[in-house]
Design a protein around this nucleic acid. Sequence first.
RNA 1: GGCCGGUUCGUCUAUCGGCUAGGACAUCUCCCUUUCACGGAGGAAAGACGGGUUCGAUUCCCGUACCGGCUACCA
Length: 504
Amino acid sequence: MDKKVRVRFAPSPTGGLHIGGVRTVLFNYLFAKHNNGDFILRIEDTDQNRFVPGAEEYIFECLKWCGLEPDESVVHGGEYAPYRQSERKEMYKQYAEQLAKDGKAYYAFDTPQELEEKRKAVSNFQYDQSSRSGMKNSLTLNDDEIKRLLNENQPYVIRIKMPHDETVGFVDMIRGAVNFNTSQVDDKVLLKADGMPTYHLAVVVDDYLMKITHAFRGEEWLPSSPVHILLWQYLFGLENMPQWAHLPLILKPDGKGKLSKRDGDRLGFPVFAMNWTDPKTGELTHGFRERGFLPEAFINMLALLGWNDGTEQEVFSLKQLVEKFSMERVHKGGAKFDYEKAKWFNHEWMKRSTVDSLQSMVKQLLREAGVEVNDDGRLKAVIELVKDRCTLIPDFVQQSAFFFQSPKEIDVTAIKPKWNEHKQQFFVELIRAYQLSITWQHDDLENIFKEIAAASQLKPGELMLPFRIMLVGGKFGPGVFDVAAILGKQETIDRIKRTLQLVQ
RNA sequence: GGCCGGUUCGUCUAUCGGCUAGGACAUCUCCCUUUCACGGAGGAAAGACGGGUUCGAUUCCCGUACCGGCUACCA
């Protein structure tokens, strides 16, 4: 096999990177790396008019975050530049005209309005071999007429002329042999009236010129593959065609259809890899990164959505995925996206993450929440204590902010109703005892607490909750004595005193 | 409508002719935790339907049903 696995990726015309797109790139990456190939990704925009600034850079940032960096960065040039279709426009046109010259394609002068009317008049109208003889194109018009229209600069498109009753097919890496009869497929537009190619022409020309070896794409492209196969046959030879794999779709969790970015807002989960703001509409689509997912968990989740290694293992690092990946085990059927399961993956990776790898992220997060961390030693201890309790990174705010600043709100309503002089005395006593304590370890704090409780003839259970509220502000967080141990003597005592004043 | 794909617990999936159909998420019960989680133990939960082939079909073949995709001068 060619050592270089070259892959091309076209971003969505409106920008952003859907998780389905990430998965496509991920499988490409895994396949390339598993086979000891180089992973070379070419990103191009698809349409000048719809091109959104920053779309390519955004995609590279996403891939970088995921750990899927291509071996050569080609976003700003490289051997096969330019990548923007608008800059390659003339080249596509030449190929389209060549096809017309060879009788494999033809000029069509039908206006969009005429086509619209036709579709209204004839149900299920298709521009194909059964209908093209009744349309305005270079097959039905005589040469003089065609020349006249061209001279008058009448807009035209170039359509592929689908042959009659031939079987075209290919072997899909996932699905095996797939065949089509050319009589069933329509005469797709190859070159639009504005001179830009459609995807069908562009994908074939670019894959050839950029020496693409493997093309992975979504299942929705399967029906147009006969067009592409024919173009390969006509233009560059079937033997040069990349190997294709059509990946199953990621479906909506409820209802039907493929997962769209709108479903994210509707159902409350991200659909893109990272936040993306459409520069034209200002519309924000949420990303997994900003929602607080770890990249390891994100790609792990995506890989398992459509692939598994046949064992019961579910948690894989990228390295393990590369090791175990095989195309044969990629599923054929689409999978409904399950956000709960996605969060489970993140929790698993959270537990596995080291304190060091989380430290800067958590520090940043706390800063954004208005909590400044000055003591990195304490931060490490806190993360260690708390990370198993966090599913998403933002959970660290609630779980650890109170270690660095005394709680802004103290939930006194949770203790006030059952408060009495007796308890008040206990905490006064506790302050005194803690003040005198030489050590400040979890076990010592607990023992002192219990001894005083026993002496005051109070059950520790009645006192633990108030103590917790005093230290963390609410009914949450790790064990109270763990909290007290990290807070230190002075801070613990201060917090007790402070709340005692509130409940009186 | 046509074409192309797909079809195992609610969801993601294991099974490559021999099953008491396994796991995970979610759900329920219990335990642990004198907070909230984590964690632990257990329960309920599936092979779309009909025909073949076979000693034996979830597994192979054919039909039907259902789901999805495509059927744009969008990708």
